[in-house]
Design a protein around this nucleic acid. Structure first.
Lengths: 255, 255
DNA sequence: CGCTAGGTTGAATACGCTCAAAGATCGTGG
DNA sequence: CCACGATCTTTGAGCGTATTCAACCTAGCG
């Protein structure tokens, strides 16, 4: 995975505190004008306490939301109490309220940690993309990457063993966090309980615990409080057949 | 589920032989001009034989593809031979080659039956959406619905029993096929082997067989050759907690 | 008529679940 | 600063859903 790129000046460097801008800049270096337009999406900021269902059937306000800090997730709960997490929203990710709404009220979005977010209108985004073909292309690329991760999640949950699933998810999180500079060496902050991990991977808490234990025993991971270290990424990638998502693809354009 | 809508004249009626147009017209009635623009996406048509990997790492041509007839699927194969289907492409669906590419070559698209397809350039689509806000909105709605179905697929595979999974998928297929007029009463053509169904739902062929058998024993479904009938949709929806996807949502606009 | 792909059935096994209970950790208030 | 409660983690044991292996059946097609 690539090292972080260089930047021109202090003002732009400060803009990279906005993880969305940092993420897009990682894909393809942004110029001053593009950074300025992207900052406009962050004009409004607000805080959401942790453990809140802040987006569901009841309170959809037709605004897009970019995560500036913290983790959230989309999930669905079945009548027997079973919960399945669908995806994580990490800093720099954009929540499209219409995909939540399209499921007829069965999906909600939940703040795993406290959140700093910026809601914005769809028109603001649309305008920005219309004015800059490069941002338009990068945005589409981002959507494709998200779709691809969701597709990989299906494969993970459908056909991988609990052991592989766990490794695969950890590697994906590592890759995503690395892009926004949220890793130190092979270590990153993982604000998930084993219950959340289990609900993401479609397994029980007990088995999640045993799987993590096994990974620790095998010296593949190390955990302390909320920190997790991947001790042998190459081996983990082989074990889980992790290929990675093309987040910085050189593909021409997307739709 | 809604009845099919009325149409103005013979020419437009003929256009509804193109399932993409029929599907969009189902969401929101199209006028003559919109139908004409959509027909332009169908200028080129070609046939693909069944059981072909016609889109994979090797042969991505950066063209979008609309399915006019037949079924295809996106899938991934693991090194142990396990295969997971990610989604079905039915008539009227559009394949975005960039989402396939974003998975770094792990996903391919396969023709389940022989196919009639129309490839088109992304620019053609872009132009059409720029000129018509209504089509733009409908297209985004379609993308959201697809994303929502993929998300529901995660839930299905992750947290539902084999029995519920099977029912849930059958209901979703029924809903999608109904929109393009590919159902007769509660019956539709299901060109899937039990192996494909099993690979879609993350289960073994043997268990797929037993589950279908149980559904037949319980008088919930009836099969003959490739036809399947859902004998009590209401009960099936309850059993699987099927909520349906909002394919004809009245939501304002999407991104 | 025989081949092949797909469907069906039985039996043994296993992966992961449920139930249950005991530790550990963290935040909070006394 | 300690104690307490709540949440999260860990461990054991029994069980069940779904898998694997293996064989046989059926239908369609050359």
């Amino acid at each position: 995975m690539l090292a972080h790129q260089q930047h021109q000046n202090v003002s732009e460097l400060a803009s990279l505190n906005w993880p969305l801008i940092k993420k897009l800049n990682f894909s393809q270096q942004l110029d001053h004008k593009e950074i300025v337009s992207l900052r406009k999406l962050h004009e409004q900021t607000l805080v959401i306490e942790k453990h809140q269902d802040f987006l569901s059937q009841n309170n959809i306000r037709n605004q897009f939301i970019v995560i500036n800090q913290g983790w959230a997730c989309r999930y669905s709960t079945l009548s027997n109490g079973n919960r399945q997490l669908i995806n994580f929203y990490l800093p720099g990710d954009i929540i499209n309220p219409y995909t939540i709404a399209a499921t007829n009220g069965t999906h909600s979005v939940f703040s795993i940690t406290s959140l700093y977010i910026s809601p914005f209108d769809q028109e603001a985004l649309q305008q920005l993309l219309t004015l800059s073909p490069k941002l338009d292309s990068l945005y589409k690329q981002m959507i494709c990457a998200e779709e691809a991760m969701l597709a990989e999640h299906v494969v993970r949950v459908g056909r991988r063993s609990a052991y592989q699933r766990t490794i695969h998810l950890l590697l994906e999180l590592y890759q995503r966090l690395d892009i926004i500079g949220h890793t130190q060496q092979n270590t990153f902050n993982l604000p998930l309980t084993q219950e959340l991990l289990a609900d993401m991977l479609g397994m029980s808490i007990v088995h999640m615990n045993r799987t993590l234990h096994r990974l620790r025993d095998e010296d593949l991971i190390e955990t302390q409080s909320n920190k997790i270290s991947l001790l042998d990424i190459h081996k983990l990638e082989q074990l889980a057949e992790y290929q990675g998502i093309l987040l910085d693809t050189k593909l021409a354009a997307q739709g």
